[in-house]
Amino acid sequence: MKKIKSILAISFLGLMALLPLSWAQCLGIRLGRYFYRQGDKNKWYRFTQSNIAHCFPELSDVERQAAVQASLIETGKSVSEMGMSWLWPPQRTLKKIVKIHHEELITNALAKGKGVIFIAPHLGNWEVLNLYLSNKYSFTAMYKPPKQPAMDKLIKRMRARLGSRMAPANVQGVRMVMKALKRGEMVGILPDQEPDLESGVYVPFFNSPALTMKLLPQLAAQTGASVVCGFAKRLPDAQGFEIYFYEGDPDINQKDVSVAAAAMNRTVEHCVRQAPWQYQWEYKRFSSRPEGEVDIYQ
């Protein structure tokens, strides 16, 4: 069954790669509207609805529904852009990046010689961002290998096309990341997926306790590396992408892991608020709850 799923997924990517970006995004819009029309029958609708209601309580019912639809449309675009992100020749994809903001944050941080920890939330098109960073810098990216071996092989090959190294989210991968930081290079970590309970700490994210990884703030404290956050914002009407870089909250380097993890979440939240409906709200970010807290996905 896993092999069949891999074949179907790779075939889908191949078909999407045949489309120009404008067509792919039109298909993504249709997908997003389909998810929205399904309502509670669609899990992505349910999770998006719950997350947005939880994180943006100030929205009226009408505003919240508009946000849910906008978010699901962006989710559909993320799906339909995967062929472009993974299978187009890298230079063709890179031409879709039309502007870069605040890149001096990276170059100045690298000049300090202690390495850079790059926070890459699931916001906009993170595969385009990975290509850009891999094209310009010595870059090691941590990732969670998928269960299908064929998909894992494809991901590693495609993400490493421009020389970046892929570090699995395990002990071996942590060693790779530490060595890269000691060389004064940049490493990329996805900060907004729930870790195992023993690997995380509950700290605020959009004013709600969220199980958050300890690894990134621990690395920052141990190495003294600079922390930069960034994302590739999707522009309307298939105009391409703009990349934004922001300095990490100063408390990310604190030795107190709860203080540092909360600072990391504030950094991510700041980026998310720049393009809120391009965030991965269909993910169950608040799946684990502290004792006594209500399950928001019921």
Rank of each mutant, 00 (worst) to 15 (best):
E63K: 11
E63R: 09
I73Q: 01
K43D: 12
G28S: 04
S50P: 00
F47S: 02
W44Q: 06
L27F: 07
F56M: 12
R37L: 08
S85E: 04
R64D: 15
G14W: 10
F56I: 08
S11V: 07
Q49D: 08
Q25H: 10
F35N: 02
S22L: 04
K95Y: 06
A9N: 09
P89Y: 14
W44R: 04
Q25D: 12
L18N: 02
I29S: 06
I52D: 02
T48K: 00
E74S: 11
M82E: 02
L15C: 11
W88G: 11
A9G: 12
E58Q: 15
R30F: 08
S22H: 06
L27P: 04
E63Y: 11
R46C: 10
T75H: 13
A9W: 02
S78H: 09
Q69H: 08
K43Y: 07
N42E: 13
K41H: 07
Y45L: 01
R46M: 08
W88L: 12
L31Y: 03
L8W: 07
V62H: 14
Q69L: 13
G32H: 07
F47I: 12
F35V: 02
Q65L: 14
T75W: 01
W86L: 14
F12V: 14
E81Q: 08
L15F: 14
Q69P: 03
N51C: 00
L15Q: 03
C55N: 12
W86C: 11
I29H: 10
F35A: 07
I52C: 04
R46V: 08
L59R: 15
S78K: 09
R30I: 04
I10L: 15
R30E: 03
S71M: 01
I10V: 10
G83M: 06
S71H: 00
I52G: 03
F12E: 07
F35T: 02
T93N: 14
E58L: 13
L18H: 06
S78E: 03
W88N: 13
V62Q: 15
L19D: 02
L27W: 03
Y36R: 06
M16F: 09
Q65V: 06
R46Q: 13
D40M: 02
S71C: 14
A70P: 08
D40C: 10
L18S: 06
F35Y: 13
D40A: 10
S85Y: 05
G14M: 07
E81V: 04
N51V: 00
M84Q: 10
Q49N: 12
T48M: 00
I10W: 08
S22A: 14
E58G: 12
S78W: 04
A53H: 09
V68K: 00
F47P: 00
F47L: 04
L72K: 10
F56K: 13
L94K: 06
W44F: 08
